[in-house]
Amino acid sequence: MGLKCAIGLMSGTSMDGIDIAVVETDGEQIVRRGSSGFFAYDATFRQRIERALEVARTIKDRDERPGDLADLEREITVHHADAVRAFLAAYPALRPDLIGFHGQTVFHAPDRGMTVQIGDGELLALETGLPVVWDMRANDMRHGGQGAPLVPAYHAALAASLDDENRMMPVCFVNIGGISNITFVPQEGDPIAFDSGPGNALIDQWIGLHTNMSFDADGRIAGQGMVVEEVVSEYLGSTFFTKPAPKSLDRNDFDLIHVKDLAVADGARTLAAVSARAIHASVRLLPEEPRLWIVAGGGRKNPHIVGDLRDAVAGSGKVLMAEDVGLDGDAMEAEAWAYLAVRAKRGLPLTFPTTTGCLQPVSGGLLATP
């Protein structure tokens, strides 16, 4: 099997824009990471997506598009096509074979066996002139899985690619987006993965509610506050944390009710502590403590989340940023979608019983051709 050059497109739970990345891969252990970029949504469009989350709660069938979801789906797809065109214009020597397209998650209810990502793969293929692999979560759910997380197959390939100095197995990849998820890669066997709890979403909502900003840049607001331990305990008392893995979250599964009476800075600092301690609490569901934690996603830029995680694992493990081991913490999920597109095209498993709870390893995705 020769290598394929794939573009990965990711618009995650932070809803701030489109991450795009290139990977050349066989869909197995060969991973050659290429260029990456980010195309931001403007504030008005981001607000439309946030409103769509409320509308999407009324969906009874995953093909339904109530309200303006159909229009929004088309616009999101066109935004992605524009991002691909701009990216290819910036890298004219690039000759991609296919695109891995995530779309925008607007509803995720694993207990109902339903996940909805808006984004039209057929339209994206026509707009870009490239084959598109999309809707990669649904087949996992049809086989009893949670539909998330899907990145662990890529994390396992990255773990195998680490240099000798950083191949400290077992390793745990942590992605801190709107929701945080972890992938535990053992010395041998399939990865173990699950959503660990709130990531940036609650902090972003809190900051947006009380300031004219959409996030706490570099944790500056949190830096003026203190951790309110009683509130941290209230969040970590959620039944979510006692559920066995695999498990996954919707962005709306946690809210701001416990911090509503706090000062702005205290709320931001406390929510950062919640994110970090929720990540570390995942150790209870792992066969052993990781020797190395590799942190990716936007939340790695919040020094309080990372600092609290370092404090929590001190003595048992080491916490490094993705960049510390030669990876790109901003592009990792987009890279994963490129990698998964190649795996899907080859019919290789995207998910495993240990990552989503599916009954057996399964592939997935739909293929759209221009």
Rank of each mutant, 00 (worst) to 15 (best):
I221T: 11
Q205E: 14
T242G: 13
D111H: 13
I99K: 06
G237T: 11
M15G: 00
L309E: 03
I59M: 00
R48Q: 14
A222G: 14
S196H: 04
K345P: 10
T44K: 10
G297T: 07
R284I: 07
P131Y: 04
C358P: 04
G199F: 04
A138C: 09
A157F: 00
E75G: 02
L285R: 12
L348R: 12
R291W: 00
S233T: 10
L340A: 13
T354P: 15
A314H: 14
G297M: 03
W134P: 03
M213N: 13
E50A: 14
S316M: 14
I7N: 07
V106P: 00
D266I: 00
S233A: 14
I99R: 05
D195Q: 10
Q224F: 08
G8A: 15
M213Q: 15
D71N: 08
Y154W: 09
G223Q: 09
S11K: 01
A156W: 07
E64S: 03
I294M: 10
T211V: 08
V319D: 01
T25Y: 06
S282N: 08
I30V: 15
W337T: 15
M141N: 06
T211D: 13
A159S: 04
A281T: 08
A263I: 02
R32Y: 03
C172E: 12
G113P: 01
W337M: 15
I305Q: 01
A276E: 03
L327I: 01
R291Y: 02
E234W: 12
P361Y: 05
S196R: 00
A90C: 11
D190S: 14
C172F: 11
L202M: 12
E28I: 08
S180F: 02
S233N: 14
D195M: 12
V132R: 04
L88G: 08
A217W: 09
F45E: 05
W293D: 03
P191S: 05
A93M: 08
S180I: 03
R46L: 11
P149K: 12
D253R: 02
F194P: 00
P66M: 06
